[in-house]
């Protein structure tokens, strides 16, 4: 069995708000294996970014992980000192964001921003860092990399900026790259270039990748394993083919039939009714039940436990209870 590089166990992340302490992530458990790409999907506000930021130790000041653990190579990241976490972020885990402009500093050149981490974390001289920087820019497909080093972020296109971000993230040879919607703001032709690049780099650098996206097409292209989030909970977890070919949770099925298929002239759009709940909305039972076409009395009252469809595929939905009794003789999975 391939070992996990990261394992998140029953993690709860809550925010202090004027409505009190509100959980944005409600007991997330999942793991990422060496070399694996895990996609986190779900609609906006479901807790994808907050899950990633909790792992990275980069939560906004009013947010806090209140329960659970985040094990990265036998260390619980939640118990690390600030400076240890910072050095881990510069070395072993890197993150890239949807809008590289927010992560790049507009007043420094690309060269400066790519040299800095190399000089600090890898103790390279300025000249060595410069040389390595050019190599990295070249590796991520930036044409005439030497002259790009002297440019400022605003002088680059969105696609180029994202490549620069990726180059900086790779400069430390991370074991895990966390990418939060890195292609959402890009046009499809540029998105395709970035997806190809990430797939190549993952192989060459032997990294694991956590990719956050709301685009089911992107998931199908890049994921090995998928977790689907809804209103702060992981509601389904499976291999990419299990999620697409035999989705178990009604929300996952709804998501898949809400995206018009480009290849199907007669695609039948079947929207999920209702809207996404707000953080301060109290919902009894299954958090999806107000929108679920199959909701039963039990769903309104009791939060579903996690059921296993296969050893690699699980979901939180009472509909699986009967099926599971049939398939697995009533055995229940503890966590996702």
């Amino acid at each position: 069995m391939i070992e996990s590089i990261l394992s998140v166990n029953n993690m709860v992340t809550a925010f202090k708000t004027s409505d009190g302490l509100l959980p944005a992530v409600r007991g997330a458990s999942f793991s990422v294996k060496k070399g694996e790409t895990l996609c986190i999907v779900g609609e906006s506000g479901c807790g994808k970014s907050i899950t990633a930021l909790s792992i990275m130790g980069l939560l906004p000041s009013n947010g806090k992980v209140t329960e659970g653990s985040v094990m990265f190579e036998n260390k619980d990241l939640l118990t690390l000192k600030k400076e240890d976490m910072r050095s881990l972020r510069g070395n072993e885990i890197s993150m890239i964001f949807q809008e590289p402009m927010t992560a790049l500093n507009p007043v420094f050149t690309v060269g400066y921003q790519i040299r800095e981490p190399l000089m600090i974390h890898h103790r390279l001289s300025k000249r060595e860092a410069h040389q390595k920087g050019i190599e990295l820019l070249k590796r991520v497909g930036i044409p005439s990399p030497a002259s790009r080093m002297n440019q400022y972020p605003h002088e680059l296109s969105g696609g180029m900026r994202q490549r620069v971000m990726i180059a900086i993230a790779l400069s430390c040879n991370p074991k895990l790259l966390v990418a939060d919607e890195p292609t959402t703001a890009l046009d499809v032709t540029i998105q395709a270039q970035i997806i190809d690049l990430l797939n190549d780099l993952k192989r060459d650098f032997e990294m694991s990748l956590i990719m956050i996206t709301h685009d089911m097409g992107v998931v199908a292209e890049i994921a090995d394993r998928v977790i689907v989030m809804y209103a702060g909970e992981i509601i389904e977890n499976g291999t990419v083919s299990e999620i697409f070919n035999s989705p178990q949770h009604p929300y996952t099925r709804g998501l898949l039939s809400s995206v018009p298929n480009v290849d199907d002239p007669d695609f039948h759009l079947n929207p999920i009714a209702g809207s996404l709940p707000l953080l301060n909305e109290k919902i009894s039972g299954c958090r999806f039940h107000p929108r679920c076409p199959h909701a039963m009395e039990k769903c309104k009252a009791v939060s579903p436990v996690t059921f296993e469809a296969t050893p690699t595929h699980s979901a939180r939905c009472w509909l699986m209870e009967d099926e599971e009794v049939r398939q697995h003789g009533g055995q229940r999975a503890g966590t996702l």
Partner: peptide, 24 residues
Amino acid sequence: ALLSSIPRPVVGVKRERIRLQGDL
């Protein structure tokens, strides 16, 4: 190229993608 760049929500089907070089 535009059509071939769209990621499809289907697994296991390898499609030829036409890679466009460079930016707009």
